[in-house]
Computed example of a mutant assay.
Amino acid sequence: MKSVTILGVTGSIGQSALRFLRLHRDKFSLDHISVGCNAEQAVAIAREFNCQSLGVADEACDIDLPDGVKLYRGAQALCEQAAQPVDVVLGAVSGSQGLPAILAAINAGNRVALANKESLVCGGTALLERARAKGVPIIPVDSEHSAMFQCLLAGKREEVHSIILTASGGPFREHSLEQLKSATAKAALNHPNWSMGPKNSLDSATLANKGLELIETCYFFDMAPEDVTVVIHPTSIFHSAVQYCDGSVIAQLGETDMAGAIGYGLSYPDRIETGLNPLDLTALGGLDFYPYDSVRFPAVDLARRAIHLGQSGTLMFNAANEIAGQAFLDGRIGFLDIARHIETALNKGGTKFKAGLDDIVRADAEAKSWCEDWIH
Rank of each mutant, 00 (worst) to 15 (best):
R19Y: 01
F20E: 06
L21T: 00
L21M: 04
L21D: 02
L21N: 00
R22K: 04
L23M: 12
H24S: 05
H24D: 04
R25H: 06
K27F: 01
K27M: 02
K27S: 07
K27E: 08
F28R: 03
S29R: 12
S29F: 00
S29K: 11
S29P: 01
L30W: 02
L30F: 05
D31C: 11
D31R: 12
D31A: 10
H32I: 10
S34T: 14
S34R: 01
S34K: 00
V35T: 08
V35W: 00
V35K: 00
G36M: 11
G36Y: 14
G36N: 14
G36V: 11
G36Q: 12
G36L: 13
C37V: 07
N38F: 09
A39P: 00
A39R: 07
E40H: 14
E40G: 11
A42G: 09
A42D: 07
V43K: 12
V43D: 02
V43T: 08
V43H: 08
V43A: 06
A44V: 02
A44Q: 09
I45D: 00
A46T: 05
R47K: 12
R47W: 06
R47P: 00
R47Y: 03
E48G: 05
E48R: 02
F49V: 03
N50R: 12
N50D: 13
N50E: 13
N50C: 07
N50G: 09
C51P: 07
C51S: 13
Q52Y: 06
Q52H: 13
S53R: 03
S53C: 05
L54Q: 04
L54A: 05
L54K: 01
V56P: 04
V56Y: 04
A57H: 12
A57R: 13
D58G: 09
D58W: 08
E59G: 05
A60D: 15
D62I: 15
D62P: 13
D62T: 15
D64A: 14
D64R: 14
D64W: 10
L65G: 03
L65E: 01
L65M: 11
L65Q: 02
P66Q: 11
P66A: 09
P66K: 14
P66H: 10
G68N: 11
G68T: 12
V69F: 10
K70H: 11
K70G: 05
L71R: 04
L71A: 05
Y72P: 04
Y72F: 15
Y72T: 05
R73H: 03
G74C: 11
G74H: 06
G74D: 09
A75D: 15
A75L: 15
Q76E: 15
Q76Y: 07
Q76D: 14
Q76I: 04
A77V: 03
A77H: 01
L78A: 13
L78Y: 13
C79S: 15
C79I: 02
C79M: 14
C79F: 05
E80F: 09
E80L: 14
Q81E: 13
Q81H: 09
Q81F: 02
Q81C: 08
Q81M: 15
A82R: 02
A82F: 06
A82K: 01
A83Y: 01
A83M: 03
Q84P: 00
Q84S: 07
Q84K: 13
P85T: 01
V86M: 08
V86K: 06
D87N: 13
V88S: 03
V88I: 10
